[in-house]
Design a protein around this nucleic acid. Structure first.
Length: 464
RNA sequence: GGCGGCAUAGCCAAGUGGUAAGGCAGGGGUCUGCAAAACCCUUAUUCCCCGGUUCGAGUCCGGGUGCCGCCUCCA
């Protein structure tokens, strides 16, 4: 089995081969910390988390770097509007970002470099580009001349002369030789206020694209394995990064480019005016479960547009409940011994899961393998063919899959004394045959999202 | 104008040219005091439409229709 990934550079699935045996250098474009992340951003982070986790599951040691863009037009504008320093302004959103990651059970990257901590690295890279003749200066700013980089357009699959010079060009007021050229270093102007650095390139601040080139190479080397982001980053951001990085080093930079599709919300493009623009906090406040949100964002293939709906969160919640119940039931098995069918079933499931995921992270196939497994084991369990040893092995298998999915771990909340008393009371009622009272108590608990299940071994409860 | 993607059941969603995975929801049943969970049966003679290639097409080709994206800073 070998992992195959769809490479945006070649537009086809390629067998993944890391530069250093057993190790992967992964750069994932991170947030611009000017606002709270919306679920579209979160989808990208979850896709990257899935990739990271599956690489680890496959035996790779992963070094992931995710940048924090903490200086650009939007952060500067935001800090000015609020009358706080840039650092203070972005700190709020950095913290919110990390809180979202924790809430969605996204594994932390190894390095989170902030742009403002790497100004000198960017300047050095720009100077290298200048030495190699890719830059020009105008009005105190430094630009990259894309016509000097012959491979420009190889990622987005554009020919330079196909680029239409559109109306949006006017949005950038800087003077350039060619509208298509992009800024490496922006000259300070009054709008920037206190935000500037005095460097060999003059007084100003870095352009957006240069940070990813500088910080990825600093932390992962001049050539590394995988670079990811949303499809909207393909052009111009990633195209420009390639021009800068390969222009500076003269060698290939990234081997595999992976991009995740956007999502729609209730069938429409997410926008604040449509009222379908959600942050994780919005959804939590509506009572939606974070694990279910993670599952929903995870369960559609990353190159497929995902239609995010509130009903979909509920459906995901139900699917997860099936897995939770499965795990809980296994933990209750007491009978000793084990059965050979189980080992067979485990081996087959691992194979199916791996084959699906190896195919460009085909999560639908991976989940199908897991749900097939659940059904087969439940059938064995219904036939009394699951013993303690089997259960342990099955749980271990599921936990192994969950190192990739990150949705199974959940805390069973504790019940309080009142609920405990009600369950006792119902037990009394049942033993004395007072079904009416027993059912009434069960209904009341149901309304509190507590489900009672009677079994030969006694009554169990679970909290939804 | 240029480049690209998608269309599979009520919903979500897989699918090397060989006879439609999986999840949610729905219906019927077994178990249960009744439930819940679990299990069994059931829900697409058909994959947007029209042609074509082929013994055979959801899969390939041509032509439509619809939705979406990119073409300078939006994951």
């Amino acid at each position: 089995m070998a992992l195959r990934l769809f490479n945006t550079l070649t537009r086809r699935k390629e067998e993944f081969q890391s530069i250093v045996e057993g190790k992967v250098g992964l750069y994932t474009c991170g947030p611009t910390v000017y606002d709270f992340a919306h679920i579209g951003n979160l989808r990208a982070f979850i896709f990257e988390d899935l990739l990271r986790r599956y690489l680890k599951y496959s035996g790779y040691q992963v070094k992931q770097v995710m940048n924090l863009t903490d200086v650009d037009d939007k952060t500067i504008r935001g800090s000015k509007e609020q009358g706080v320093s840039l650092a203070e302004y972005t700190q709020t959103y950095k913290e919110a970002f990390f809180e979202d990651l924790r809430n969605l059970n996204i594994e932390p990257a190894e390095v989170y470099p902030a742009a403002t901590d790497h100004i000198q690295d960017m300047v050095d890279l720009i100077l290298r580009l200048r030495d190699r003749g890719y830059t020009y200066e105008m009005d105190g700013a430094t630009y990259f001349r894309i016509s000097d980089f012959k491979e420009y357009g190889k990622l987005a699959h554009f020919k330079i002369d196909q680029l239409k010079v559109g109306a949006r060009i006017d949005a950038d007021s800087y003077e350039k030789e060619e509208a298509r050229d992009f800024a490496l270093w922006k000259a300070w102007d009054e709008e920037d206020g206190e935000v500037f650095w005095e460097t060999e390139l003059g007084k100003g601040r870095p352009g957006w694209h240069i940070e990813c080139s500088a910080m990825s190479m600093k932390h992962l080397g001049e050539q590394f394995d995988i670079h990811t982001g949303g499809v909207d980053n393909i052009f111009p951001h990633h195209e420009n990064e390639i021009a800068q990085s390969e222009g500076a080093t003269g060698k290939p930079w990234v081997n595999y480019w992976l991009h995740c599709e956007h999502l729609l919300v209730e069938g429409k493009k997410m926008s604040k005016s449509e009222g379908n623009y959600y942050t994780l906090k919005d959804l939590s406040e509506k009572g939606y479960d974070r694990k279910a949100i993670r599952y929903l964002l995870l369960s559609t293939h990353y190159r497929q547009q995902l239609n995010f709906t509130l009903a979909g969160i509920d459906a995901s919640r139900s699917a997860l409940q099936r897995l939770y119940d499965f795990m809980e039931n296994l933990k209750r098995v007491r009978k000793g011994g084990n059965h050979p069918e189980v080992a067979e079933c485990v081996a087959e499931t691992k194979k199916n899961f791996g084959q699906a995921m190896d195919d460009d992270l085909n999560i639908s196939g991976g989940l199908a393998a897991i749900f097939d497994f659940v059904r087969k084991i439940n059938i064995l369990a219904a036939g009394g063919k699951i013993a303690r040893g089997d259960a342990v092995e099955i749980v271990r298998t599921m936990e192994n899959f969950d190192t990739v999915l990150g949705v199974l771990e959940y805390k069973q909340r504790e019940i309080d004394e009142d609920v405990e008393r009600m369950i006792q009371e119902r037990h009394q009622a049942r033993t004395s045959g007072d079904w009416k009272k027993a059912d009434e108590i069960r209904d009341r608990l149901r309304e509190m999202d507590i489900i009672l299940e009677d079994s030969p071994e006694g009554t169990r409860w679970k909290i939804l």
